[in-house]
Amino acid sequence: MTILRRAVRDRRNALLWWMLGLTALNLFTLAFYPTIRGQQDFDELVQQMPEALRAMFGMAEGVSLSSAPGYLWARLFSSLLTILLIVYAIVGGAGLVGGSEEDGTLELILANPVSRLAVALQRFLALLLLLAGLTLVAALTLVAMAAPFSALEGVDPAGLAVAFCGLYSLSALHASVAFAGGAITGRRGPGLAAGTTLAAAGFLAQGLLTAAGAPTWTRNLNPWHWYLEQNLLAFGPRWEAALPALFLAAAPVALGIAVFRRRDLR
């Protein structure tokens, strides 16, 4: 577990800044809520937006954007908070093998009595831990700071918990894809590209396919859809929002490690 400990330690300082950033995001979002709360004309404005756009930003039929569940879902879970966590996951994942191989530091580590499997796996586990810490801080600060702004009114507690679990799972999936891109090629760029492609394609497809009324099975292929399909804060927990993406993350990790174990280092 030396590699895991080291990987966590190496990223500790950056993580603290990220935690600070997400806390600030939560605070600003919450602080803005009282000015929106109960504004009917805001909802009317939203109704005039194209459906694809509404779907993309988590504005669902039957949930007012001026209510706490509608507002938080649109402002945080369907947009910035998710995107930031996914950026953290992608940048982290691409660096684990690809990045450190590219900057040359990996080779000296692999000259030690440690297998490539151990290095890759422990580093990915380290990123899962860091990601869990970051998600947890985002969740705790949101809940802790919500009261003065009455921003949890009408929010389903179990749904909120599942929303954060889903956020974590979706980020972990993106981390795994970025990790695989880096581990397969030995460079950071392809990892970033793989993760970003999944994020952009998944996010856009979620909005567009929903709006276009595409068959359910096509939408069900999209991990973003599992998470965003329905406002968890308003309608309560759905298991498929929380877990499948996390299990799915094992596949890119396994593939990345399988290739990394056999190929030449750069």
Partner: peptide
């Protein structure tokens, strides 16, 4: 050389040293 056990008994000094600068 890929066998971790054998690498315990090897000291390696590469031509281009890349350490994490921190």
């Amino acid at each position: 050389g890929a066998d971790p056990a054998v690498r315990r008994r090897i000291g390696y000094l590469p031509a281009e040293l890349a350490f994490d600068p921190r």
